[in-house]
């Protein structure tokens, strides 16, 4: 926690990539917004929620490596020998990741305003809450995965294999409503796709959009599952 907040470099690097997308990819979206199937809202209202979800996914990769380093250096073992509950060991890291992520997301949204982002304030706040939960779920899942693999190379392999489909099937850059039927159907299996859809509706202030309750239910379920999985993995570390 202290480490991540003390290190402003990592904080800034995390935001740098989405800012580049805003500057260098955002302008490409303008003509696309006129294509049939493009959801309501302008390019920024579609792109920014997508970039936020992408930020969550990329941050969770870092979570895995950070925990791997703690495993190697003995920091994790030193904590495991204390009476702190295994769930607390997981949740402490989850909360740290959420705080950092929400701070980054806030900065990114502010940066997006001069680019042309216009969004419902209460929608953005609710969107951030949903994003925070998504970040918690991915942090817990990344930790569980790391502790199951216990190996940097395998972690890289699994991460690379999972990130591409999760990203491509989430519609973060181009909305999935543009996709052919089969691709759209496939994307419905990806929890991140539901998060992105719900965030886009929230940014527009469309609170009654069915994407919102669907997104919330998916994210809440995913978070519970991931935290359950993560806690179990911490408990079984002594096996």
């Amino acid at each position: 926690m202290r480490g991540s907040l003390r290190n402003p470099v990592w904080f800034a690097i995390g935001i740098l990539q989405p800012v580049l997308y805003l500057a260098l990819f955002g302008p490409l979206l303008a003509p696309v917004t006129r294509s049939p199937g493009f959801p309501p809202g302008d390019g920024w209202q579609v792109l920014v929620p997508g970039l936020l979800v992408q930020l969550v996914l990329f941050s969770s990769i870092g979570v895995g490596y950070q925990l791997m380093a703690e495993y190697r250096s003995g920091v994790l073992e030193r904590m495991r020998v204390t009476p702190t509950s295994r769930a607390a060991l997981l949740l402490g890291r989850v909360l740290r990741d959420i705080v950092v992520l929400v701070a980054q997301a806030g900065v990114l949204i502010v940066i997006a305003i001069p680019f042309g982002l216009r969004a419902s304030t209460s929608g953005v706040l609710l969107g951030l809450a949903l994003l925070a939960m998504t970040s918690g779920a991915l942090s817990a899942a990344a930790q569980a995965m790391t502790l199951l693999l216990k190996d940097e190379n395998q972690l890289t392999a699994v991460t690379n294999t999972l990130t591409a489909p999760l990203l491509l099937l989430s519609g973060v850059l181009l909305p999935m409503s543009l996709a052919p039927g089969w691709l759209h159907a496939l994307s419905r299996l990806n929890p991140l796709a539901h998060t992105v859809d719900a965030m886009r509706a929230l940014f527009l202030g469309h609170f009654a959009d069915p994407a919102v309750p669907t997104g919330v239910v998916v994210v809440v379920l995913a978070t519970m599952l991931a935290i359950g999985w993560g806690t179990r993995t911490f408990q079984r570390l002594n096996a």
Partner: peptide, 16 residues
Amino acid sequence: RRRIGYVAQTGGTDAG
């Protein structure tokens, strides 16, 4: 765990 201290062979402090 509440009653013991344990110092690992390789330590367990965070360098930063």
